[in-house]
Design a protein around this nucleic acid. Sequence first.
DNA 1: TAATTTGGTTTATATTATAAACTTATTTAT
DNA 2: ATAAATAAGTTTATAATATAAACCAAATTA
Lengths: 94, 94
Amino acid sequence: MFKKLDPLLHSELRLAVMSVLLGLKDADFNYIKEQTQATAGNLSVQLDKLAQAGYISVEKGFEGKRPKTTCRITPAGIQAFENYVESLKDYIKR
Amino acid sequence: MFKKLDPLLHSELRLAVMSVLLGLKDADFNYIKEQTQATAGNLSVQLDKLAQAGYISVEKGFEGKRPKTTCRITPAGIQAFENYVESLKDYIKR
DNA sequence: TAATTTGGTTTATATTATAAACTTATTTAT
DNA sequence: ATAAATAAGTTTATAATATAAACCAAATTA
């Protein structure tokens, strides 16, 4: 009846991050931070979890002399997101 | 951008409970337990939280000599559910 | 009358989310 | 030149949540 919801995506901030990344080729740490209104600490932790799961890739580089972290959703991430949305329908269909 | 998701509803089991109750006039503890595949302990706790929030009403009575707990979604619960679904759209629109 | 089942509740534990504190390097001001 | 402020994160400590295991009381069955 109710499909299990992927616990990695069933989190307000991680879902928002995925939502931001879905629309874009990539996005840097601070852009995601602004869009999601997250604190840096929380965002850092949640990005790690998404990266561990292989749902996003995280590239740490530099822009000029400043560090710059760029994130990108992976094919596995897109698939997981789609599965999550599909599962959610069991719960919210009227 | 991303509306805050009601933390009471952003829970797999509580959302499933609300989903079950939305379709029905009322439902007893064990019916909800079957539908959601929850353990009794977990269900008991989550029903309490939904009742505390005023999203459901819980009536403890008897059927013959056996205790029987009947739950019903309240108007506030219906409204909260609808708001939750509306907020979710920010996150899952493609 | 002893064991089992029903219908739950309470409590303990594991997991998660979050913010606060911290680190390292870079600018800016003095 | 150096002190203060800012940027870009990370680590750690705490609070909140979810969950299952243990428990309880009454009823039923063996």
